[in-house]
Design a protein around this nucleic acid. Structure first.
Lengths: 348, 348
DNA sequence: TTCCATGACCAAAACGTTTTGGAAAAAGCT
DNA sequence: AGCTTTTTCCAAAACGTTTTGGTCATGGAA
């Protein structure tokens, strides 16, 4: 036995007829809009309750241009081309938290892949607003949404779009300095940085902060780049390059990898070459993940707190949708989780 | 500078005016519905393209009762009350894969929390259909959706609703037998089962299959139950109970825990008591997760292949929505990943 | 009494589509 | 030519709301 019953909703007309009033009065009573006598209003409310009426979201959406749905685009997943990157729990946690927060505010949350591609459902452009996580430089998605007048908020700014200010900072500068200071506190002298290749703010700002920090200390900057999709083998490859440096002097005694997978692979390769972690080289990851938690030794990481970021993003977007032009985006605070990979006492 | 431009869409009327035809003709041309001269049709298509027209999903939804959105409710997450259960990647992968598959079929995917609760956005009941993952017994969500005539498909059946047949099997019986046979092949004599407390098909069917299997072999069934939310400590607690059994005879030499977190905790507690894994006791988990992969030793698990299940669920639901009453749900095949926790040679 | 507020309600328009039931023009047939 | 069929198009209805611009009493102020 299968159920595909007649889809007959109880409409506002039914309530109006039953309560002996016009649909206007029903609408007003339910939404507290017009002026309606208390007694009448109560009668309408009761019959609506009795009939199990609730306004059709689509019809309402058509009339009031407000669907009650937020769109979420996670750009790194678009480029990763797989939505199941094993061990990367940041985005999942982000999406889950965003969904819950949206629900709490009376919105649904729709996951959407790059809406500039063909075959994207029309509904994508009908949502009330978008959260774009980690946009690329000159991101065409932002372009498209702006052209359609759809409110949007990004998590991490578009590095090539200085005039767009509705973004939440990721606290990248603070994080980077926290990591670098943590490392030098433990005696690191030559800290290298490994970033990804996506043109997003996380990569760009981390590099920028690192270079400034290095310059302040008169240290030569050592920046390596590796594709986000390369995973642990990508980390190994970078380690390979570091180890085969021309002069032994140039081999770093601490490495800050933004992604956890690079960090895990890199640490393994260093160990294979006979380096002790943390004694000979210390490792830090910019994003906590399964790999950082479970490497041997466990890798010190920034816990990116996607739940907090997601909540903030939803709340910020909702304010924008509701016409709050002023409120400025909150600043996200992340926390450094020291683990064994940097558990070394400072050397005078 | 903030962008909240006027949200003025180009409508079907604009296209009609520009092309010098009626809106009927535009609609027909675009949807290939009526009969329209090839030349006219092309002209309409061109102007639509030129004006960047695309039909408003809401208006279309109102008229044709079809929004282009699927709803996804993951019941275990409703009971877990947190959407960020660390280490549980099954549902994230499920949601991601479902979103992608839905997109490929021209649908959006909306994450929804238990829609029977208050404060759920009206849009939830306006979607074209629902996927309910792991429904509870007599699940009120199913009840609600059926009352509203919304097509739905469940992943894992509602154990208390025999008349509802639109569900995808999880292959639980096959999985259970595969695990149990794997264990006896390696010499297990007293296999215990640890299930959760949710009244879903996974728990129920696993227990059922286990009991039948035990009866077939004349083995006394040892079934333990532990709350899903209890996590690793919950697994430790169960191990505690096993170890303090009245007679030493009753201590199992192999344990099949459905959830990875129970398995990890249980294994740790056994090791603490001086048991060697897999020599003294073998452990298997019914759901691969971070904990099973990274325990010491790594725990043999069923890889639940959420991507395949999700794809199948979406495809099944879409067929239902499109009125295909016949097609019967596909059967999911999962795979057992042997790891060190059962790496023992059989004892004659 | 006349006038003007005010309170309570409602008819109709509007939102942007799809679809129904034609109508007008063209073509074919006898 | 007269009739029927086919082709091509369109006006209007419908989907279920919200909102606009009223109408009609009622009551108080002049």
């Amino acid at each position: 036995m299968n159920f595909t019953p007649e889809r007959r909703r109880v409409t506002i007309h039914d309530v109006a007829r039953e309560a002996g009033v016009s649909i206007t009065t029903v609408s007003h009573s339910l939404n507290g809009k017009g002026v309606v006598a208390a007694a009448t209003r109560q009668r309408v409310l009761d019959t609506a309750e009795r009939l199990g009426y609730s306004a059709d979201a689509i019809a309402r959406g058509l009339r009031s241009n407000r669907l009650g749905v937020l769109g979420l685009v996670i750009r790194p997943l678009d480029t990763l081309d797989s939505y199941q990157p094993v061990g990367v729990d940041y985005f999942v946690r982000f999406a889950g938290a965003a969904a819950v927060e949206a629900l709490d505010r009376g919105f649904g949350l729709m996951l959407v892949r790059d809406p500039t591609t063909k075959n994207v459902p029309g509904i994508a452009l009908a949502v009330d607003g978008f959260i774009i996580s980690d946009p690329l430089g000159h991101d065409p998605v932002i372009e498209l949404l702006q052209r359609n007048g759809i409110p949007l908020v990004t998590v991490g700014r578009d590095v090539d779009r200085a005039d767009f200010t509705d973004w939440l900072g990721l606290g990248t500068d603070g994080d980077t300095r926290a990591v670098l200071n943590h490392l030098t506190d433990r005696g690191a002298r030559r800290v290298a940085l490994v970033i990804g290749t996506d043109t997003n703010a996380w990569n760009a700002d981390s590099e920028q902060s690192y270079r400034v920090w290095a310059a302040e200390r008169g240290q030569t900057a050592m920046v390596f780049q590796q594709d986000e999709t390369a995973g642990e083998p990508g980390g190994e490859a970078i380690a390979e390059r570091m180890l085969t440096a021309a002069k032994q002097q140039a081999v770093p005694d601490a490495v800050y990898c933004l992604t956890g997978r690079h960090a895990a692979g890199l640490q393994r390769r260093f160990q294979l070459a006979g380096y002790e972690v943390p004694a000979d080289v210390m490792i830090v990851a910019g994003s906590d993940s399964e790999q950082t938690r479970n490497s041997t030794p466990p890798i010190t990481s920034i816990d990116l707190a996607p739940e907090i970021t997601a909540k903030a993003a939803v709340s910020f977007l909702v304010r924008r949708i509701e016409g709050d032009i002023e409120s400025s985006p909150p600043v996200i605070e992340n926390v450094l989780r020291p683990r064994q990979s940097t558990n070394r006492v400072a050397v005078g």
